[in-house]
């Protein structure tokens, strides 16, 4: 059985409005998958992930998470299974120190104090922030704050972790740090990851990419296939990977490359062979 399944889900923000933020979406996510959600601004990405833990309750359709149907009764159980990391690291930091912030979620679900301390230590270690326990948020970098946010989610031992553009406000270094952390944690505890991003490198990590357009799912495919869309990607709110850019430039300069997605290694290999033929 799939971990998450949506069946004909529609959502509108205001009942008087005809605009559907989500229009009849059906999809399934398996356990242990890394899914990236891409789409232009206003395509409904954030709305979609917010329906997964009941922050937005859809007016139509059914959602089930780990066998539980989303309704008012199950909502808090589901929220424990679905951890979310949001965009702005400052606006989701609740505690006045790192340890307090990680503790916040545990306090909410009534974990006894001894177990809490253990879980805080464990999750801070997982994200490599164990030496920052007593540090205040003002003294952390953006990437470090997001790692603490991830630790706060990990302490709750969720089934799925949702990154709602969690790296969009970070510098390249912080972004790489956070992605590495998520990747390491995912592998260790067989987490399911659902990330929303405009960052191509983050999208390349994914097992599958969902492309959203105007509240509907337009494509679902592996990154290699999605990256083949080329110029269309820009309209979908994503840049083209560097290798693709290079391939296009070379093709514009009358070099006849095979028309398929290439990784860096394959392009290097191809160029190398091509060079030896001349």
């Amino acid at each position: 059985m799939s971990l998450i399944s949506l069946k004909n889900v529609s959502y509108r923000y205001s009942s008087t409005d005809d605009f559907l933020a989500l229009n009849n979406i059906s999809l399934t996510i398996e356990k242990g998958e890394w899914i990236t959600l891409i789409g232009a601004n206003g395509s409904g990405k954030s709305t979609l992930v917010k329906t997964l833990n009941g922050l937005n309750m859809p007016q139509e359709g059914t959602i089930s998470v780990d066998g539980l149907t989303m309704n008012e009764e199950n909502i808090w159980t589901i929220r424990q299974k679905v951890g979310m990391v949001f965009q702005n690291p400052d606006n989701q930091f609740v505690g006045s120190t790192v340890a307090d912030d990680v503790a916040f979620g545990l306090e909410n679900i009534g974990v006894p104090r001894d177990e809490m301390i253990e879980r805080i230590n464990r999750s801070l270690e997982q994200v490599g922030m164990q030496n920052f326990k007593q540090v205040e948020p003002a003294r952390l970098s953006g990437g470090q704050k997001q790692r603490v946010a991830i630790a706060g989610i990990l302490a709750l031992e969720p089934e799925i972790i949702i990154l709602d553009e969690a790296t969009s406000m970070l510098d390249p270094k912080g972004r790489a740090e956070v992605l590495e952390t998520v990747k390491a944690v995912k592998e260790r505890s067989n987490l399911t990851v659902l990330s929303i991003t405009h960052d191509i490198n983050e999208a390349a990590h994914a097992d599958r990419i969902f492309v959203l357009e105007k509240g509907q799912i337009k494509y679902v495919d592996v990154p290699e296939e999605i990256f083949k869309l080329g110029d269309q990607l820009i309209d979908l709110g994503l840049t083209i990977p560097f290798v693709e850019q290079l391939r296009y430039q070379l093709m514009n300069n009358n070099l006849h490359l095979p028309n398929e997605f290439m990784t860096k290694e394959r392009l290097v290999e191809w160029l190398w062979k091509y060079d030896s033929k001349m």
Binding site: K50, N53, L55, W76, R79, Q80, V82, G83, M84, F86, N91, Q92, V94, A99, D100, A103, F104, G105, L106, E107, N108, I109, G110, V111, P112, R113, M116, I117, I120, G152, I153, L156
Partner: peptide, 18 residues
């Protein structure tokens, strides 16, 4: 939103870290 997503339901049944 971030607080709610982390299961904050008000003061009832909460434990304390500090």
């Amino acid at each position: 939103t971030a607080m709610e997503a982390r299961g904050y339901q008000g003061g009832e049944n909460r434990t304390k870290y500090r």
